[in-house]
Amino acid sequence: MAPLRVRVRVPATSANLGPGFDSLGLALDIWGTLTVEAAPASVRADGMAWLALAAAERLFAQRGRPLPPLRVEYDGGVPVARGLGASAVARVGGLLAACALLGEAPDPHALLPLAAELEGHADNAAPALLGGFQIAVRRDDGSYLCAGFPPPSGLRAVLFVPQRELPTAEARRVLPRSVSRADAVYNIGRAALLAACLASGRLEHLDEATRDRLHQPYRERLFPALAPLVEASLEAGALGAYLSGAGPAVCALTSGREEAVAEALAKAARRLELEGETIITAPTSRGAHLVEV
């Protein structure tokens, strides 16, 4: 018998990791919780709840079923419109909840194509569903292939999350329609190096591996503080740093010296008169999961 109330936890995610535009993502130990329950009549929803309901409705439609009246409540520490995968939290949460309400056991790999379609790309959806470090590739026929592994033990992520929002659509509009061969080769090499670093634990190369020419230089026009924040984190001992997703959050990867890096980011932000907060967290190997059915 399908439940009348479902609770789902979904991790925040940091996409691109510098060179892996629309392809690489890392799940973070920051969580959003969605509670979805049957309601006597349709309940007006907006924000995260609306995204979750829209995702649930798509899955019900795939099964040839109408979406029943539902109420969605969101609670969690995932900042919205900051480059930490909040929309993927809502959509993936809605898909897992829909599975449970349909009486199905959620299959993250089976849900990835729809999650990626809803998101427009899989770099946040894959780690939100599966946890860990994920490489998502879109095949020529439009389907997705995903491969990943647990992040190295001891790896930490220090975030600076600006108070201002930067919607993904705005951050994508500034990107060029084509890039040079030199820039493509630059990023291909560093994306491969990044995967090798994280798979092998050779973290000493992360500074070079998190560099990018395909999106960060263009998005810096919208967020000029990016370069000073990255530089401050590296000078304080970060292994590598990059614009998280479409931004404006900056993620510095560390293995020790987390407090020093956090303080350096906060100090640089004060110098730039940029309001925001620092968060010290870690990657997580766990993806979205049901916590109450």
Rank of each mutant, 00 (worst) to 15 (best):
L272H: 09
L222G: 12
I279N: 00
L239Q: 01
T284M: 12
G201H: 12
V250F: 07
I188F: 13
A241H: 05
L272R: 09
A264N: 04
A192G: 13
R173W: 05
P224D: 05
A238L: 08
A236F: 02
S255F: 02
Y186F: 15
A209F: 07
L274Y: 09
G189D: 09
L239S: 10
A266F: 01
I188M: 15
V174E: 10
A268W: 04
A246Y: 01
V174A: 10
I279A: 01
A199V: 06
P248F: 13
R177K: 15
A232L: 04
A169E: 14
R271P: 03
E275Y: 06
L239W: 07
R270G: 09
P248N: 10
L206R: 10
R172W: 10
R202V: 04
G237K: 13
P167E: 13
G237Y: 11
A269I: 00
L214S: 08
L203A: 10
K267W: 10
L229C: 13
I280C: 00
A241I: 03
A182D: 15
P228V: 08
G247M: 07
I279D: 00
P228Q: 10
A199I: 00
A171Q: 10
F223C: 03
A191D: 10
A269D: 03
G256P: 11
G189C: 09
E204R: 12
H205G: 08
L226D: 00
R271C: 01
H205L: 15
G245R: 07
K267P: 03
A225G: 02
R177Q: 15
E231K: 13
L194E: 02
L226H: 00
L265Y: 01
A182W: 10
V179S: 11
A238D: 00
L253A: 05
R213Y: 03
E258W: 05
E235I: 09
S255R: 15
A199F: 07
A191Y: 12
P283G: 03
E258V: 02
P167K: 11
A252H: 01
S255W: 06
A249T: 14
A182Q: 15
A260P: 05
A264L: 05
T254F: 05
E231M: 06
S244D: 08
A236Y: 07
R221G: 14
D207A: 15
R257H: 14
